[in-house]
Design a protein around this nucleic acid. Sequence first.
DNA 1: TTGTATGCGTTATCAC
DNA 2: GTGATAACGCATACAA
Lengths: 392, 392
Amino acid sequence: MPRVVCPRCEKAETVQKSGIVRKKQRFYCKDCNYHFTIYHESIKSRKKQKPNSGGQTSLLDIAKAVGVSVSTVSRALNNHPDISEKTKVAIKSIAKELAYEPNALAQSLVTRSTHTLGVIIPNLHTTFFATMLSGIQHVSSQAGYRVVICQSDDLHQTEVANVQALMNNMIDGLLFCHSLETSTFDHIKIQLRRGIPIVQFYRVSLEVETPCVFCEDENGAIQVTEHLIEMGCRRIGILLGPPHLMISKKRLEGYYKALNKFKIPLDPKLVANVDFSTKSVHSSVDNWLHLDVPVDAVFSISDKSAVQTIQYLKKLHIKVPDTVCVAGFGNEYTGEIIEPQLTTFDVRTGLIGEKTAKLLLNRIIDQNSTSENVTVKGHLIVRDSSKRVQHL
Amino acid sequence: MPRVVCPRCEKAETVQKSGIVRKKQRFYCKDCNYHFTIYHESIKSRKKQKPNSGGQTSLLDIAKAVGVSVSTVSRALNNHPDISEKTKVAIKSIAKELAYEPNALAQSLVTRSTHTLGVIIPNLHTTFFATMLSGIQHVSSQAGYRVVICQSDDLHQTEVANVQALMNNMIDGLLFCHSLETSTFDHIKIQLRRGIPIVQFYRVSLEVETPCVFCEDENGAIQVTEHLIEMGCRRIGILLGPPHLMISKKRLEGYYKALNKFKIPLDPKLVANVDFSTKSVHSSVDNWLHLDVPVDAVFSISDKSAVQTIQYLKKLHIKVPDTVCVAGFGNEYTGEIIEPQLTTFDVRTGLIGEKTAKLLLNRIIDQNSTSENVTVKGHLIVRDSSKRVQHL
DNA sequence: TTGTATGCGTTATCAC
DNA sequence: GTGATAACGCATACAA
């Protein structure tokens, strides 16, 4: 004769009834001073009491309607091969009828996969980053992944806060483009240790061991600088971002290489770091114009500042490109609108986003996929802001 | 002597042991032909067997470490008043030590709130919508909500697919800006019936009963048109979007009102619907220029087309604003860069996004908050593209 | 082929 | 003040 065994001490002799709790028989083990109930009783009362909790159709509703078990329904809807065609058809038909939608939360809790990616990006005001995001979103949604976004507003603190906000098991992977301010990376390293796949793009740090997606920073800078040299420029000012950024470093490197190739002397006075604000751009340009040998070209590593430069030069009645050539980097839409139109290097922002998402998705889907860094090829776009007849 | 009761028939006499399954005692009710096990046994073996499943610290881990129950830990971490200070401190300290992070999935499953908003927006390539999204994201994140984005790419089918993809219980509310193509709204109505809070913004449909956030469509169009009239223009071509869009209708209405006010005859030939493509804009402008009495102004309801118009007129060597004034609507960044700079109506895209998010969040947080439509005030920005000396 | 039980990690309810 | 456990909705190992 089976008896109830105390779950603590495993004995049956010491167990006695101890009243009814919520309509369930409750037991008590004298030996361990331990109260407990039996599972099945509660199952039963649950099934009887629940009409329908949240209003949504659940597997249980379908199971009851069809007259099968929840697991059968689950398997049928997932096209499990074990389930007979007949049952599948019946279940799917009822599911449709009841407008069943799986509860992704419950699924995720079980499968430990949310089909959601997080993106942290400096801002969305500019087409530049927005287009990257656009690429990310398109690729992700094609692969059946949602995209959660956060803007760091180029603030380190916000970036850190964003990471934390995203990290509550709600995302399967993270895409990262650092804020201008960010120069420490513990907030990412922590998450990396937790095992979440991360890919950095555009503004990356090699200090963090993740795959990265770059644009052609150095090569692009070489192409732009060489082009300006070929246009006859010899005093090329370069407008960089904050010095700690890798894009600043690598583009400066490219600039140097091009000058060296043409044996043009380097002049530290021609290198300026700006924070991309109008004020800082104007002041750098001012400095350059007042040098003993003033600039005959400005190469800005952002189109935004290049446009600001053109506008400023025009305001000063300095002719572009005749007196000063201007070139940007990035290929934003504004470059086509400014007059003269802007020579720039198309980094292909949309493609950067797409490649980044693909890289991350590959890592997520194919755990042991080799994930190496990717460099997105760009190309030089020569427009009027640098086209000038050579002073032979 | 307590005995195991069959969960089906509630009898105890018919129950007998039926072997050990996965280390648990299994029972069998002869009467119902029903096999079952007892709950507590499995609990016990679980606790012994599981080391740690996903690697993440859970409440159970903390409970074990501190020597209290899971419920106590949960309450302590939620600052429940019942828990003693001492216990709270102990639990929180261990929680920190174990780097505990609550599993938002599990929380959401129980609380039925994901703290996530979905946004469906036509695109992200243009600053226009990206800035709205930016506003939405800022407000949401301040309120502790995540934002999931989808672009419809101005395709109705994609818009519909997006809704479905977002709707798996993963979001608490939905923000909607329709695609250009969309003119049926069943996909939203279905979701509305399910009880999910929705707010439409910018491109809205009154056919769907949700709160809406508008910009000053009619009033803005009145202001722009009046301004052009005051500049001496009498033949003002208006460049609308697809005719089914409410923004087309309302802005046309404003245009008419302004003309009427100044007793300027309406000419249907001066009203054009375009799909915002370069080609369609050029062709409309061409038509207007070849009228018997050609246009002396173009009012485009999008800045993008206004810029295209200016560029085209310049290409045709038609002077802006001397021969033809141009005005846009929206205030995109490009309007400041084009030459002459574009007169436009600032609809304040960022603010539209913010107001939209606030409206939705209010509805979510405050179930019975009255949620009425909101119109975001904008203002006319007069720039060179319309400033001309009056022909008195 | 189908059903049963269990677990995912949390909150809420009730008992003590 | 604390503990036990049901429940959220689903997937799945195992039993039948």
